[in-house]
Design a protein around this nucleic acid. Structure first.
Lengths: 75, 75
DNA sequence: CCACATTTGTCCGTATGTATC
DNA sequence: AGATACATACGGACAAATGTG
């Protein structure tokens, strides 16, 4: 079993939290700096995960403000 | 007017080429190394562009093989 | 099977710019 | 003005997949 990349782990964790209701529409996600600490990783995989989650419609990322759960996340 | 980031330029160029028919489904894109030379940029923005184009369904990227225009690109 | 070159994948650290608070 | 937060880009390192010989 090949181990899962950090950025995929973040994607899975966030989508799971949204699906389960732990994260609700409009909720603010931890900052990149905080996510780096949580996952003990650099900003590279964290930022990649957030960008992909944004592309897929799970979150909205706003410069200077932060990342927020989308109002209508995918099923 | 803020100038356009390199990765957005790549995205625009590739989507335009696909839309115009210059690039057809199944066609192989230049390698990352070649795109770096063409745009006189590092791999970072090139990779980002390819990843986003993949997420949006324009291309398919395969490790060890290359990037190929999707069989059914978006409208 | 092995060796090698090519190509993409993942991640790190760093620097600088832009937006928000 | 300063602090916080995200954006873009560079260079480098090592891993993994592919194709060829």
């Amino acid at each position: 079993m090949p181990r899962q990349p950090v950025y995929e782990q973040v994607i899975d964790d966030v989508t799971a939290s949204i699906r389960s209701g732990t994260l609700k529409p409009g909720d603010k996600l931890p900052s990149i700096t905080e996510l780096c600490e949580q996952y003990r990783a650099s900003a590279t995989p964290i930022r990649l995960a957030l960008r992909i989650l944004d592309e897929r419609g799970w979150i909205e990322v706003h410069q200077g403000k932060g990342s927020f759960v989308a109002q209508s996340p995918p099923a």
